[in-house]
Design a protein around this nucleic acid. Structure first.
Lengths: 346, 346
DNA sequence: CAAATTTTGATTTACGTACCTCAGAATTTC
DNA sequence: GAAATTCTGAGGTACGTAAATCAAAATTTG
């Protein structure tokens, strides 16, 4: 039988009330008595029954998810996943609220974080923007004892408790390695090969990190692959399309394209209308309806993906664990970089 | 406020006892009364509080994991993951027991399943062997109302409730696609390229399926890649090593090796001692200490992996859900094929 | 040493559900 | 219409913990 508070009281020779005071850190216990109770807890190997405790407290975990009101497929999918979690939340004693913020706007994010801080939720998840004022707001949350998790985009060297997202440098390295290997041979002559990079904005940390990883691997392992200046398409379909089309026109010898942002719809349109000597090798990020279709019909060769559903569920698990002061299973919470070819599409 | 049984009683105009009889399918309720209660349940949107119910029943889920006593790294890791789950199980109202069976022995597996059936656990997970008698034993379990999950290796067209493992045909296709792309160019001349396949045994379903996927992609997309007859190394390090060494000696032009079983330690040793004109391109399965090292230092080029921890946790979640009659979140329970290059090693 | 303060015990109620008993009401059977 | 049977209500206890009250004991303070 699992030991209960009653067993502790019996072994320690104190009353239930005292055990309760020790367990819940309430005042009014001499240190000698506290010691006796703690010894009993250890010797019995007591672990609090969380289900019973939550029932007694009639506790619900109230979490807030702050999400950018972005219109790209990935962010829409992410929001959808959080909605799904909201739908399931009642049966899991969680009460999840979604707060929308304008995208790429540190000030708005800070304002949201402040507003959220005021209502003292049991935990906050947000898509970070890498700015000092955001870091300061995160610090105020953690100083108020509110567990915080960054989602998709991290805020390193801050007081966040956890990051639910992929390692973007590793993602860029992986893209670089695939690009190098796929290009070696058929698409590369003795003069080397030229590769274009399409990003959203170099102001966003994820994009910077992916480019960094990509460039590093290319420079070290595939020195005869040349990377053109980055095209910043602001994750906008129309802008991305014209930029890519323009680049293809100007550089007939583009052998590969790495799309590290969310401008894939435009990229795909540009590729479908272009008619160069040969189709460039394309590696993109995020499996959406359009990238999936492009992968199937050979317009895109590989897609690196982060599973938004996993990220959301992981964020919730971590927030819950932190709220309960429980340890986090690191292996379970590591968000993986999925590599999809047309052959392993789910 | 979430509705409770008390609210149902009030709305339906019956007593708590009657509500309880309806909710738990106990006899002694006229169909008219039952209807009133059911209407109230629906109109209130009542959902039973599982935590409270389990507390009242002082219920623990008793699950049994039947695992082959195999000595390869993957199975050892899998067992380790189940052990970890056992360690955590007390705090999750689960009581998991591990049963060892001799590997590759359908009779022994059936005997274990029978023995387990006798003790009526709340759920069973087992690594299936594709044999009619195993299928029959699984049927008896499900007829007894015991949820069953196959782990790592499936038993298709059986009465199992769920399969916690990867799609091995897709894994083989992915390996084929990577092999074809990586080979095209530097390692392939106009005469094409030769590829060797190292398997454990063609009697095991996973291995057959991986080979099937691999061969299909190669035949369709890379017709000038030739696959040598499969080497069956029985997942034994020594045997695998001699078979690979022998093959390399006989076929100096082997450009690629696909290791789809668990004979990687032997394979790596053979590769390290061989000194052909150029290193073959190697794709293997399962990220273990040895494949990880080989990936880092370039002996292996890509590793396809299934995360044993995820499989075990998924199996437990599914068994729990089935035991409670709850739906399963398919997206969460899909086990993915991880592709590791040296650049995205975790 | 008395008064004030702190510490502890005993007891109770509550959370939402399960399960049991027993009495009384309603219905069916003869 | 009486007897047998089936249904229903009222009430209780339990699961393991939280949280509160109030009295009694121990300790510290003046």
């Amino acid at each position: 039988m699992k030991p209960t508070v009653h067993d502790i009281a019996k072994i320690a020779g104190v009353s239930l009330a005292t055990v309760d005071r020790v367990l819940n850190g309430r005042p009014g216990v001499r240190s000698v008595t506290r010691g006796k109770v703690e010894d009993a807890i250890i010797s019995l190997g007591y672990v609090r029954d969380l289900a019973a405790a939550n029932l007694a407290k009639s506790r619900t975990y109230s979490f807030v998810f702050i999400l950018p009101a972005n219109d790209n497929s990935f962010m829409i999918g992410l929001t959808e996943e959080v909605r799904g979690a909201v739908a399931r939340s009642s049966s899991e004693r969680t009460d999840i609220r979604i707060v929308d913020v304008p995208p790429f706007d540190p000030g708005a994010l800070v304002a949201s974080l402040e507003a959220v801080l005021a209502e003292k939720p049991a935990g906050v998840a947000f898509v970070a923007i890498d700015a000092p004022e955001v870091r300061a707001a995160a610090r105020r949350l953690s100083e108020a004892g509110i567990p915080t998790v960054t989602l998709v985009s991290d805020l390193p060297e801050s007081s966040r408790d956890h990051y639910a997202g992929i390692d973007n440098i590793a993602a860029g390295r992986t893209a670089g390695s695939l690009m190098g290997r796929f290009l070696s041979g058929p698409l590369m002559d003795e003069r080397g090969a030229t590769v274009a990079v399409l990003a959203g904005s170099m102001l966003v940390r994820d994009h910077r990190e992916r480019l960094e990883g990509f460039s590093t691997v290319i420079a070290h392992a595939y020195p005869n692959v040349h990377i053109l200046p980055v095209l910043e398409g602001r994750d906008d379909p129309a802008l991305s399309e014209t930029m890519v089309a323009e680049a293809l026109r100007r550089n007939a010898d583009i052998a590969g394209i790495y799309s590290l942002g969310a401008g894939n719809r435009g990229l795909i349109r540009a590729l479908q209308t272009a008619h160069g000597p040969r189709r460039p090798l394309v590696i993109a990020h995020e499996l959406t309806a359009s990238t999936r279709a492009a992968l199937s019909n050979g317009v895109i060769d590989a897609v690196l993906n982060q599973d938004a559903g996993h990220e959301v569920r992981s964020a919730i698990r971590v927030l819950k664990a932190k709220a309960d002061g429980l340890p986090v299973l690191a292996a379970q919470e590591r968000i993986r970089i999925d590599i999809f070819l047309k052959d392993n599409l789910p």
